[in-house]
Amino acid sequence: MKNPFKTYSAFTKAGIQDAIAYRANFLGFFIGEIFYCFVMFFIWKAVFNSSNSPTFMGFSMIDMTLYLFLTNITVFLTDTDSSYAIGEEIRDGSISMRLIKPIKIDLSLLFFELGNKIIIISMVFIPIILGIETYRTIATGGIAFDIVQFLFFILSIVLSYLLSFYLNLAFGYLAFFLMNLWGFNMLKGAILRFLSGGAIPIAFLPIWLQGTLKIMPFASLNYTPVMIYMGKYTGTDLIYYIGLQFVWVIAFILLCKFIWHLAAKHLCVQGG
């Protein structure tokens, strides 16, 4: 068998070129994200100023600031186009081109996005992490950076990305049956935003809901890596949540294979 990395590295190269070609789009988006974080920071600052307690449901202002920036960077890193990309290809029929090539559709998309991510990591991720650590050092008056915790965070974020990719791919495959995905994409976005803790930190929700949300795959998308970075998950918790992420990744890879198997049989190319 040929080395898959050799076959698919061409896609990674194309991904890098794509990211560089649309770098203005990228940088604009990034600046917006930072702006967004700062505005949320001020909203929370006003909340803390109006409150008599130094913590808000167990979060201090420093925790909240870290949470904001980390959640945004995690969403940015684990964001994937797979659902949209595959949905569009199914809708306009260009999916047939992928079917006749001797490559796996999921791996070619994955390696293409990897190229995109390389650019994001070098341009966005590293500066943000440096910024966060500088803030944390000044705010807490000591270096809180823990290399072991950071490595677990990286592992967790890789799992988050894979989960995000396969979850979205499974969703994109729905276009085989529904043809037009626009509305469902909106619905998915709205539900994911809530279930993954992107809109409201899961810790702020009622206890019974927290338990359910933490087991579901969506918390694994960005809440888990953020909590690991913040040191809220340690010891057996840490192992448990990373294990859970791993299980969900496998489950969604299998689900994708299953849907693909079903769909490829009754593929009907629209306008093809």
Binding site: L178, N180, L181, W182, G183, F184, M186, L187, K188, G189, A190, I191, R193, F194, A199, I200, F204
Partner: peptide, 25 residues
């Protein structure tokens, strides 16, 4: 594409509920 339209409208509603919930919390 009416199902598409209905799901779009419904997801909008979910977003509003989440935002109000956030303010309430």
């Amino acid at each position: 594409y009416r199902i598409d339209f209905l799901t779009g409208a419904f997801s909008f509603l979910i977003n509003q509920v989440i935002n109000i919930l956030f303010i309430s919390i």
